[in-house]
Computed example of a mutant assay.
Amino acid sequence: MNFAPKNRVRQSVAAGAVLVMLGVSGCTFTTEQSTTTQYAASDGVVKDLGPVLLRNVLIVGTEDGRTGRLVGTVFNTTDQPVELSIRAGGAETSITIDGDGEFRFEDETEDDATLEGLSGRPGSLVEVDFETDGEQATFQVPVLDGTLEEYRDFVPGGFTPRPSEPEATEEAAEGE
């Protein structure tokens, strides 16, 4: 009886199947699971600067890119009030965050949150300088417009939908 050729064929097929499986699934052995990666699921930046935590900070701007309004929340992790200076382009504003408190740009007057003289149109990133307690950092902050409904109330000068957007089309149809 001669079993050697059949066994070699079976062994070759088995070895080939193992190699194919390793080739197809081998990357999962070395790749990190995407569900274990922590990230900030927000439209704005999430950064820490000394005792100040910046959460979902972004700029809602106008089409000409000259004016923008800050949106987001900043937290103070100390029990003493902290001053935060914000500069972008030629614009500057300063806010005070109470000890162990938070400051929501959406809840404040436009004087605290409006930046005049920006050079970033919606869809771009603008370098914004943040400074507090002698610590300073520059972050790339996104500029959005009123396309997303949740930001329409914050567009300086108000939001006007483009004619191709459903709201404008519906309003035009009602006016006929």
Rank of each mutant, 00 (worst) to 15 (best):
residue 19 L to Y: 03
residue 68 G to T: 11
residue 105 F to T: 03
residue 102 E to C: 00
residue 71 V to H: 14
residue 71 V to G: 15
residue 19 L to C: 05
residue 78 T to L: 12
residue 34 S to N: 11
residue 119 S to E: 03
residue 51 P to L: 01
residue 36 T to N: 05
residue 81 P to Q: 05
residue 71 V to D: 09
residue 81 P to C: 03
residue 26 G to Q: 06
residue 9 V to K: 13
residue 123 G to E: 05
residue 44 G to F: 04
residue 59 I to R: 14
residue 77 T to Q: 12
residue 77 T to V: 01
residue 28 T to A: 14
residue 112 D to R: 09
residue 28 T to K: 04
residue 49 L to G: 03
residue 76 N to F: 09
residue 5 P to K: 13
residue 33 Q to I: 00
residue 70 L to W: 06
residue 92 E to Y: 07
residue 95 I to S: 02
residue 106 E to K: 05
residue 104 R to W: 08
residue 50 G to T: 08
residue 48 D to K: 07
residue 71 V to F: 15
residue 83 E to L: 00
residue 33 Q to C: 01
residue 115 L to D: 11
residue 34 S to F: 11
residue 54 L to N: 03
residue 126 V to Q: 14
residue 87 R to Y: 01
residue 31 T to L: 00
residue 3 F to R: 09
residue 8 R to P: 00
residue 2 N to R: 14
residue 10 R to H: 11
residue 27 C to R: 01
residue 123 G to C: 12
residue 69 R to P: 04
residue 65 G to M: 03
residue 65 G to C: 01
residue 107 D to K: 09
residue 123 G to W: 10
residue 8 R to F: 13
residue 2 N to D: 15
residue 113 A to Y: 06
residue 74 V to L: 11
residue 53 L to S: 14
residue 84 L to F: 05
residue 125 L to C: 02
residue 53 L to E: 13
residue 69 R to D: 08
residue 104 R to N: 11
residue 101 G to E: 10
residue 104 R to K: 14
residue 90 G to E: 08
residue 97 I to C: 05
residue 86 I to R: 04
residue 48 D to T: 15
residue 42 S to G: 15
residue 35 T to V: 02
residue 6 K to F: 13
residue 74 V to M: 07
residue 37 T to D: 06
residue 11 Q to M: 10
residue 46 V to L: 15
residue 119 S to H: 01
residue 77 T to L: 14
residue 8 R to D: 03
residue 62 T to V: 09
residue 93 T to C: 03
residue 120 G to Y: 12
residue 78 T to I: 02
residue 124 S to F: 03
residue 69 R to K: 05
residue 18 V to L: 08
residue 60 V to C: 10
residue 76 N to P: 12
residue 7 N to S: 06
residue 66 R to P: 00
residue 10 R to M: 09
residue 29 F to H: 01
residue 15 A to N: 11
residue 2 N to S: 09
residue 3 F to G: 13
residue 84 L to C: 01
residue 100 D to K: 15
residue 94 S to W: 01
residue 120 G to A: 15
residue 99 G to C: 10
residue 120 G to N: 11
residue 123 G to T: 04
residue 93 T to F: 02
residue 90 G to P: 02
residue 6 K to T: 11
residue 75 F to D: 02
residue 91 A to M: 02
residue 100 D to A: 15
residue 76 N to D: 11
residue 74 V to I: 09
residue 61 G to E: 13
residue 78 T to N: 10
residue 66 R to V: 03
residue 105 F to L: 08
residue 127 E to Q: 10
residue 3 F to D: 06
residue 70 L to C: 05
